[in-house]
Design a protein around this nucleic acid. Sequence first.
RNA 1: ACGGCAGGCCGGGGUGCCGCGCCGUAGCCCCGGCGGCAACGUCGGGCCGCGGUGAGGAAAGUCCGGGCUCCACAGAGCAUGGCACCGGGUAACGCCCGGGCCUCGUGCGCCGUAAGGCGUGCGGGGACAGAAAGUGCCACAGAAACGACACCGCCCCGCUGCGGCGGGGUAAGGGUGAAAUGGUGGGGUAAGAGCCCACCGAUCGCGGGGUAACCCGCGAUGCAGCGGUAAACCUUGCCAGGAGCAAAGCCAAGCAGCGGGUGGGUUGCUCGCCCGCUACCCGCGGGUAGGCUGCGCAGAGCGUGCCGGUAACGGUACGCCGAGAUAAAUGGCACCCCAGGGGCCGCCCGUCCGCGGGCUUCCCUGGACAGAACCCGGCUUACAGGCCUGCCGUUCAU
RNA 2: GCCCUUGUAGCUCAGUCGGUAGAGCACGUCCAUGGUAAGGACGGGGUCAUCGGUUCAAGUCCGAUCGAGGGCU
Length: 127
Amino acid sequence: MRKSLTRRERLRHRDEIENVFRRGSSYRCRGLAMKCSKNGLSWSRVLVVSPRSVGKAVRRNRLRRVGKEIFRTIKHTVLGGYDFVFVVYPGDYSFQERQEQFLRLLSDARVHIFRDRDPHHSTRPTH
RNA sequence: ACGGCAGGCCGGGGUGCCGCGCCGUAGCCCCGGCGGCAACGUCGGGCCGCGGUGAGGAAAGUCCGGGCUCCACAGAGCAUGGCACCGGGUAACGCCCGGGCCUCGUGCGCCGUAAGGCGUGCGGGGACAGAAAGUGCCACAGAAACGACACCGCCCCGCUGCGGCGGGGUAAGGGUGAAAUGGUGGGGUAAGAGCCCACCGAUCGCGGGGUAACCCGCGAUGCAGCGGUAAACCUUGCCAGGAGCAAAGCCAAGCAGCGGGUGGGUUGCUCGCCCGCUACCCGCGGGUAGGCUGCGCAGAGCGUGCCGGUAACGGUACGCCGAGAUAAAUGGCACCCCAGGGGCCGCCCGUCCGCGGGCUUCCCUGGACAGAACCCGGCUUACAGGCCUGCCGUUCAU
RNA sequence: GCCCUUGUAGCUCAGUCGGUAGAGCACGUCCAUGGUAAGGACGGGGUCAUCGGUUCAAGUCCGAUCGAGGGCU
């Protein structure tokens, strides 16, 4: 499977983003928050942002890039048909610790598929 | 060798795997539009390959100056705002370069008992026009704060009850203040005072040098107009029309109009000019927050050499084409080199026996400040570490 | 990206033309009350966001920096 994250798989428009923030379900843990909602498409779309309190543009870009990279490497284990918004908060975390935060919130939302299981028989999300 | 100051430059490099934006290009024939009966052609998109390319010296703050776009043209005057020694550079500037003057620090020399003064060298700083056009302000203190004045004093005359009192002269000394109407020394005088003299300062005139700011020399005037503040109003000279790429133009989608004004034309006033009076403007309400152009373009462009210039910079020849996103591309992981910091075992060298330096090995960091958003020229601010040049100081060697 | 506004006591704000920084609430002590609140008297508390400049003198004038808030398709 390709590990790319193309333009189609990113959440790009203001109304779509505001829709997720307004109507999506919330999940959060230390250092990360996630909002998601169904988008009616066959694939999932994602957006990673960092709040203004993180600091200046360089630090905020860095957190967004790490978040995008994590989603890219694990996106084949995520169900299709959802819009995700990840809000990355500052903290002294390594790449692996950040990845665990993402996997935990995706599991909490029941949209995470483990690789040793057949995707077609996994439990459907309940919202 | 080390340390300090000033100026200039750089701001990690490489390999592998995975990934992102943009440009070009072959393919698939996946999707849509148009043409065609069809095969297919064409345009746009998607996917998958290949090639190219991909953050900074400040990209930052948005403090100045332009280009560019729109306001019919970008016109005149006033208002308003900005700038301000002189000359040059530049598209322009409040920027840069050179020069002048003032001021601060410091070395040397001279004068002086000293305080200090003068000359000169080096380095730093200066929003540095005008206070003899006018207005305002100068708290407290002080007699008096701008054309004003006598508190303590000093001196003369008169009176006296010998304590002083009155009239006048004076501004040297004390005192107040940030600042008291030239300074120092001498003469003079009742005491004093540019009252007179010498030197310094100031003003004016003449001559010389310099494009100029200004400098130098000589002479005259006792200085009778002279305090400070224009980053107070102001005066003089110069500059500026306004808004800003969320400018501006086009396409698609969508909605609902109502009330008011007669003028409107992107700060204010007047004039001119233009447009319009089925138009335009103002207010309330409703709808849309998508795409394309602008916008990645050869440009006040970058690099190197030569020429002119003290320099900023200009000219010329050759070469090069160097990001273009839009919830916003330039990233992630691993390793090596290099650089820096820290620790321990061992080895070597020096030793004033406190330790210092080098090698090996291990760990940490990739280091600081910081992310293009229409584009340039500056300014300001932030910044780990390193390199180069010049000057100064200390030590060692010759 | 562009354009504005603002920063004064713990909080909300005054401070004109430069001349020793104030008000209300809050805080402390005392009075008053059997006690508390209200009330009264007295008092403490400020790097005027930071740095530099002009001036004899700066919260005020000028420049730079930092922070906070708002608007523009």
